Simulated scan of single mutants.
Amino acid sequence: MLQAFFVAYNRFHGEIPSEIGDLIYLQKLALLGNQFSRKIPFTLGNLASLTKLSLRENNLQERIPSSLGKCHNLELLDLGSNNLSGFIASEILELSSLS
């Protein structure tokens, strides 16, 4: 049962695989400092146990998926230094666990 997955500062590129959303026991996910592009997979909302998510320093685009609002244990959401656009969904803004 995988609880933490850290792949930071490598040269991974392309899309973040939507299958990451199948790792339902994942608590910490850090894919920062890579070259991931396109959008953040909506399947990350399947990770109800997720407490920390860092996708900083990639080339992610489009908007933050509202499905992240299902991550009720999320304490850290770090999406800085990307090319995200659009609004932040109310489902995410209403997460009381975010500090």
Results as ranks from 00 to 15, higher is better:
67 S>D: 15
43 T>V: 04
98 L>V: 02
71 C>W: 05
2 L>C: 06
69 G>V: 06
40 I>N: 03
83 N>R: 13
18 S>Q: 08
43 T>E: 15
12 F>N: 10
27 Q>C: 09
86 G>N: 10
16 I>R: 07
96 S>V: 10
80 G>N: 08
2 L>I: 15
19 E>D: 03
55 L>E: 04
37 S>K: 08
6 F>M: 10
61 Q>F: 03
25 Y>K: 12
79 L>G: 07
18 S>E: 10
85 S>W: 00
27 Q>F: 04
57 E>K: 15
85 S>R: 07
38 R>Q: 12
30 A>W: 10
12 F>R: 03
58 N>A: 09
47 L>I: 14
97 S>Q: 09
41 P>K: 09
80 G>S: 15
22 D>N: 15
82 N>C: 12
48 A>C: 00
89 A>H: 10
25 Y>A: 10
88 I>Q: 02
41 P>F: 03
29 L>E: 07
57 E>P: 00
73 N>Q: 15
82 N>L: 11
99 S>W: 01
59 N>T: 08
40 I>D: 01
72 H>S: 06
99 S>Y: 00
76 L>M: 12
92 I>V: 15
45 G>H: 07
87 F>C: 07
50 L>R: 05
4 A>L: 03
34 N>E: 07
1 M>C: 05
81 S>R: 04
59 N>G: 05
19 E>F: 01
40 I>Y: 00
64 I>N: 01
55 L>N: 03
56 R>S: 13
81 S>L: 03
14 G>E: 12
45 G>S: 08
71 C>T: 04
75 E>F: 06
91 E>C: 09
79 L>Q: 02
9 Y>I: 12
17 P>M: 01
42 F>Q: 11
29 L>Y: 09
20 I>C: 06
86 G>I: 06
89 A>I: 00
65 P>G: 06
48 A>N: 04
18 S>W: 00
59 N>S: 14
56 R>K: 13
42 F>S: 14
50 L>Y: 07
31 L>T: 02
64 I>D: 01
97 S>M: 02
42 F>R: 09
35 Q>G: 14
35 Q>A: 14
6 F>K: 06
24 I>S: 15
27 Q>A: 14
61 Q>A: 14
50 L>M: 12
60 L>P: 05
4 A>H: 12
41 P>L: 06
58 N>C: 08
11 R>Q: 04
67 S>N: 13
64 I>E: 02
13 H>G: 08
25 Y>H: 13
81 S>Y: 11
5 F>A: 13
85 S>C: 13
44 L>I: 06
